[in-house]
Amino acid sequence: MSNVKPTISKALKKNIRRNFVERLIEWALMFSGLIAILVTFGIVYILVSESIPFFDSVSLKEFLTSTIWTPNFEIKNYGILPLVAGTVTITGIALIVAIPLGTITAVYLSEFASHKVKETVKPVLELLVGVPTVVFGYFALLLVTPLLQKIIPDLASFNMLGPGIVMGIMIVPYIASVAEDSMRAVPMAMREGSYAMGATRFQTAVSVVMPAALSGIIAAYILAISRGIGETMIVAIAAGQQPNFTFNPIESAATITAYIVSVALGDLEHGGIGYQSIFAAGMVLFIMTLSLNILGQWTRNKFSERY
């Protein structure tokens, strides 16, 4: 019998085919995962490759130090500072609103609220995170700004205060839910330790739970800053699209994002310097948000390592 050539049984043949199919599927799945990497590379590639010609005509020094951004004027000037100033001012206003309100909401939900209140408020917060920002832009321009003008008569109809406040309200649920998550993750044993010493709720919340959850709370703030900087529609609608080097909230100014929108709405030819400028601006925005996101993630991970 030893000279008989072994024939592959039907079952075994099926096995080979099956292994082949299994392998094929695994490759397909892996390719899907690969897309996430490709997108990141795509972003970096496009931002860099479209910005390079821009920096051929505009020096990096002018870009980073000039305080004038006038792409539509006879004498074109490309200093990013006015756009950064607008971005920073509006985000700053948003944070002044969102950080106290978001933190108070988080502490209240995590340490004070009854189970019932928590179960009602948490889903509502999640709902609010899903509200499209164009709607918040409508509120900023047509409701909040007119209201503010009654208090501050000098307020321009496009200004940074109104969109800043609205952006703050938009960010509150975001801060509240991330900060609440990290406070909830603080082990109950730590709270019991504090209560056993005769501490009140407020004392426990402020001097034990919040310090324990600090890196999670800070991560919430950092991620909120990143979100504010990248927010587009609220500012494009309500803050005006004219670059203006000012930190005065009652004036109008463009942010980086609003500038990109204003160019995209116009008819700038493909390959022109105006077209390239939005990629240079986008690169600044990308670097800012990416570093904040990495910092935020890092802070958050540091927190979760501990518990």
Binding site: I46, E50, G230, T257, N293
Partner: peptide, 27 residues
Amino acid sequence: LIEINVSNLAGVPSIIYGLLALGLFVY
């Protein structure tokens, strides 16, 4: 690497995706 990319993509401002699409898909 995939994981880091996914979590970073979640935080990229939406307008950056617009720029990606403008440069890559449109042109």
